[in-house]
Nucleic acid binder design. Structure first.
Lengths: 417, 417
DNA sequence: GATAATAGTAAACCGCTTTAATTAAGTCTT
DNA sequence: AAGACTTAATTAAAGCGGTTTACTATTATC
């Protein structure tokens, strides 16, 4: 382990094994500059970097030229003067790499390619019938993503990361889908492995789709500025996602927020719980449909709209069906509010997509129970929320990785020369 | 804002405004060494610091002498040889400062003084009848703390921080007790301000006592190693504390975990909720007592023991009272498990202090509902848990503050000389 | 057009850490 | 018991990187 004192003299300016901790300082500063640069929506100057980072002008100058050389930052020439020498404008090169998002759904899957800001470049919807084998579906999705990138002239080798969302219990550590209630074939599927293989080795991350929807809403939707909030998804299944201090809370077994299994009262506990007594079976879409006898006569897609219309018109049966459902969802929501105390609850999923009045019911129930002034709003991004979350996570992770690789490659690139 | 170039020549070796960012590097390393030193339970050598911090020998040497000079680290002379020159032993000086903890209770208040490891030096219990004015009580507590320190020969000026726990809603930002269900006089009490004044200016932090109990259990009790877990407190009131990744989760209005207000089913929602329909009124100590007609005849302290004994003996009334209570607590616990997905639940409070069998009931209910294998155990520290949490928080915060002050005072202290 | 303000670069300096060499004080082997 | 080897800690020299200071370039303002 001892270094051989007789080893070859280190060449002047050699990068390897340079003073480790002075280099660490430089790495920190590269990170600082890059963070500022990436978060700026538009162009910026060296002077602005000095202001924002607190570093001195020569340091910022040196780091800027280094980062321009690597291509992460682009030089845009001189800008308008503000009463003196004209500044040279720079911009974070959001196309220094690309990311993709995949929102796997029970019948349709949404794809998108985006730049490093997360801004979508192209998107597409492919049909993914749940009868097909997961491996086949993932192959189909990968092929669609490739053709999408081709059409958008995004180079394959530029794809840095793909984030995929799946409904159900996702083990983000192993990248597997443990089980998905509405996708019976998706049990213990190594989604990350299969996708990564089908994509020729591109890194893949897998996450629960409700979690991604919440991140999407927090980024560009109804939850902007709410750093501790929750998303309550009600469709055929019921689930919640929880954001705490801007971080997803997933729980010890990746089961945090799986409120479909919540017990709604002592009277339900002796039933065969899980098939009859839990929230999902009492207040999911199927349960609501069962409360509305006319549903069977209508088409499978439009019954909810009809039910809501009937309730609005004053039909007592419809009103009761909606009221009972909203009451249960409201209690569950209030329980989340009581335990987590978020500043906002976002309601989403098919139950709320067309059913505006339901939101009001739920809000009223929450307000009558909870002791905190928690806002209850409906999703702003709707079906696009999980995909937006995919792109956000992908862009953020890719940027983090980029910063790390630039830090460790902190060369000596002396100014000019 | 521009520095005057003609300003007086800076004296050689002046600390102020030295090269800012090289000094920052030193500050980081001081922090690193101190963190290692503080976390070592016993003595350590320079060689061990080199190993643990990854820094070079000269750096560790320089930092060690500096820290010994300041007194945070003590030199213990040479230790036993391990086949070469004998190392010089050092030790974190846990008495470089002191902290105190105060666990305010409805009838009794626990006090303790501890060193910077959080190890108690002396403790005491003072009676604090809830009829008295908060300001008076706090004065009494402060006086008791002073006399306790006096007896233990702890210098007053060495007291760095006091952490106090209170039952009820505590605003840790402002250091106020918004309200405490069992302490009617404690509404909007500026506890931090009053205590700090009564103690002559010593910094004070205030925190909810259930939160502190959870931290105590995580530190030295039943929750050791469980970085995401919860404490469910059941006494006259009911409340929960939530730990997520070793950090307390307090919520947006400091109301996270206030499950006393949890709604236990749709049938309760139309009652005047809060006084009849919520968990606390259905399953708190008072509710259990009401379910047991014989309670009135017994003494106010021992009825719970008698009730449990009767239930154990097979008394059907007693069994039903216990069963109904445990079922409700179990559902609430399961709701917490569902939402948070912790690895462990700790049950504490008067309800479980003498009532071992109740824990089994609750565990069974949780297991029948929750879909995750979450352990349910009883508190290991009992009534001492909040005080332990006080001392932990106080010691940790004091150490953090100490590290910061030593970092910013990173002098030039050249070795020897 | 002189002046002041803004933007950026070059050179000197300085603190901190590292590597390398040295001192110190033992244990182990033959 | 003498020499060889280990382990611990200090001293010396060298280099890296950031800041300060000084200087150049460019342009709006008076």
């Amino acid at each position: 382990m001892k270094p051989d004192p007789r080893r070859a003299v280190r060449p002047l300016g050699s990068h390897a094994a340079a003073a480790r901790h002075a280099a660490h300082l430089r790495a920190l500063n590269i990170d600082r500059v890059l963070s500022v640069a990436m978060d700026r929506p538009g162009t910026f100057t060296r002077a602005e970097l000095i202001e924002a980072t607190g570093l001195s002008a020569p340091t910022v100058g040196s780091l800027s030229s280094h980062l321009i050389q690597t291509g992460v930052i682009r030089d845009l020439g001189t800008g308008p003067s503000r009463g003196g020498r004209r500044p040279s404008l720079m911009e974070f090169n959001a196309r220094h790499g690309y990311v993709a998002g995949i929102d796997l759904g029970p019948t349709r899957t949404r794809l998108a390619v985006a730049d490093l800001r997360g801004d979508p470049i192209a998107h597409r919807i492919v049909s993914t019938p749940s009868e097909e084998e997961p491996a086949q579906l993932l192959g189909k999705i990968a092929a669609a993503l490739r053709s999408l990138m081709d059409e958008a002239h995004v180079p394959v080798e530029g794809l840095l990361l793909v984030v995929a969302g799946a409904p159900g219990a996702v083990d983000i550590k192993n990248g597997t889908v443990a089980f998905a209630p509405n996708l019976p074939r998706w049990t213990d599927v190594a989604m990350r492995l299969l996708l990564q293989r089908a994509l020729g080795g591109t890194p893949v991350m897998v996450e629960n789709d409700v979690n991604l929807a919440l991140l999407g809403e927090h980024w560009r939707g109804a939850a902007r500025g709410h750093d501790t909030c929750a998303f309550i998804f009600v469709g055929t299944g019921i689930g919640a996602a929880i954001l705490i201090d801007r971080e997803l809370h997933r729980g010890n077994h990746f089961m945090a927020g799986e409120i479909g299994m919540m017990c709604m009262g002592p009277q339900y506990i002796d039933m065969d719980f899980g098939t009859r007594g839990c929230l999902e079976t009492l207040a999911g879409l199927e349960a609501l449909r069962a409360r509305w006898p006319q549903a069977a006569r209508d088409d499978p897609a439009g019954w909810l709209t009809d039910l809501i219309a009937a309730a609005d018109a004053g039909d007592p049966h419809a009103r009761q069906a909606v009221g009972e459902t909203a009451r249960l969802i409201g209690i569950a929501t209030a329980n989340v509010v009581t335990v987590v105390d978020p500043s906002l609850i976002v309601l989403g999923g098919a139950m709320f997509a067309q059913a505006g009045p339901l939101v009001g019911h739920v809000r009223a129930v929450v307000e009558s129970i909870a002791r905190t002034p928690t806002q209850v709003v409906v999703s702003a991004l709707g079906k696009e929320a999980p995909l937006a979350g995919c792109l956000l996570v992908a862009a953020m992770e890719a940027r983090k990785h980029l910063r790390q690789s630039l830090r460790s490659a902190a060369g000596l690139v002396r100014m000019v020369q």
